[in-house]
Design a protein around this nucleic acid. Structure first.
Lengths: 237, 237
DNA sequence: TCACCTATTCATCGAACGTTGAATTGACTT
DNA sequence: AAGTCAATTCAACGTTCGATGAATAGGTGA
């Protein structure tokens, strides 16, 4: 994006080997995790000499970040656009909680179903990273939280006088549900005897939005602030 | 549990090195994942010779399973007991959705807060395993799904005529929210500017139960089956 | 034509990996 | 006192790891 001409058509050289490396890394990191794959294995899968990985991308950790960053940018753009659209559509009323959550989840679930395998691998990678104590609180925050803050602002419009901590925790629950979906581990296939499929993200999209919206409304109060129900103390046992 | 006497007081031999190995493995697997730790590093942390790992536990993969299994058994016992209690307390009425979800989550969150560091490490390990496509659909199913099925049966009592697929997916969302909580990545600390803390599982427990219960009721229909609201088609865009 | 620069290959470094067979210890039985 | 057996240590196997410096190829601009 920064170097305009040199990136798109630099005479005729510039092979696609860097892309091949990133693609292979994406697939293998998604399948086995950062430490579960060697740089040599990635290079082999990309049909590229090992030293080219260092040359084009850098060290192994930099390769991981490059894979993570590559798709995050376009994702974030689309999510913000969809959020602005849904705010504009509802104006001057605030948008519904459902519409906001849909703008948050739809660009992800839709890409994973409608586009190539690369996106599925990418989201599986995100799922593992998000639950990893080494990177979940750092890389994920860096790449995605700026967008998350915008969505939280919108949710404050839809849920006025909402308690801040309830809002953050509600988002946390939504993030966890979405994240486990991306992992596509097949566990629900087993549990449901084949009635539900991890890979059926359309089925998730139909259900995650109302599920999470109900949770947000319950915690963050959809009623007038006077009549809001109090949380149970949860001090049993 | 099988060998009764030899386990508890075998004269005086039988050091605790096997336990030390499992403890060190639990901590390091939780921090860096299966492939991120070497057997030698685990042995070093346990202050034990490398070969003792193979002798007492077996191969690296068997060590991982042993760590996972060790606490799963007592967890499952307590969860089932709490479920039976909550069913008995409510009888002859079916228990509330909130009570069932509390029986499902409380034994986990409570141990993680009230007991030693080992339990926190264990749950962090579970969080990573649950989101890992290599083991999330196999090991997690094997160790925890028998208990999950019992909870789903109870939820069918509380939510009669519930659509089966909605029930499974609702559980999936709950599992994701709970799982991300266990990871304790610190991401919400950053996002909320310190207002919420990953380590504050009491705050989670207060909120996860009503959040998830609202989602279950929304998806699985708390009203009479005639007046149930239909899901939006989600075919927008 | 020649120098230049990027892209690519080759060869190799030391370190760490998981696992195992053989040797040693030490408390108990006979 | 000798024997037994589980627990533990020691040493080493062959393999793979991430990284890099030096050499090569090949199209481009001077």
């Amino acid at each position: 994006m920064l170097q305009s001409a040199a990136m798109t058509a630099p005479r005729k050289t510039r092979s696609n080997k860097r892309e091949r490396i990133l693609n292979a890394a994406e697939r293998l990191f998604a399948k086995k995790g950062f430490h579960g794959v060697s740089v040599r294995e990635i290079a082999r899968a990309a049909r590229v000499d090992v030293a080219l990985v260092s040359y084009h991308v850098g060290k192994k950790a930099e390769l991981f970040e490059a894979v993570l960053l590559r798709r995050a940018e376009m994702l974030n753009e689309e999510r913000l656009q969809m959020l602005e659209d849904c705010i504009a559509d509802a104006a001057p009323e605030p948008p519904s909680v459902e519409a906001i959550i849909d703008a948050f989840t739809h660009p992800l679930l839709n890409r994973s179903t409608k586009e190539g395998r690369g996106w599925k691998d990418y989201f599986s990678l995100v799922a593992q990273a998000n639950n990893n104590p080494e990177v979940g609180g750092v890389l994920m925050s860096r790449y995605f939280d700026p967008v998350v803050r915008r969505f939280l602002e919108a949710l404050r419009m839809a849920l006025p006088d909402c308690d801040e901590r309830n809002l953050f925790w509600s988002y946390h629950f939504l993030s966890g549900a979405l994240t486990l979906t991306f992992a596509e581990t097949g566990r629900i296939d087993n549990l449901s005897g084949g009635l539900c499929l991890s890979s059926d993200l359309d089925a998730v999209h139909e259900r995650l939005v109302p599920f999470a919206a109900a949770g947000f409304k319950r915690l963050c109060g959809l009623h007038d602030s006077a009549g809001r129900q109090k949380l149970p103390p949860a001090k049993n046992r």
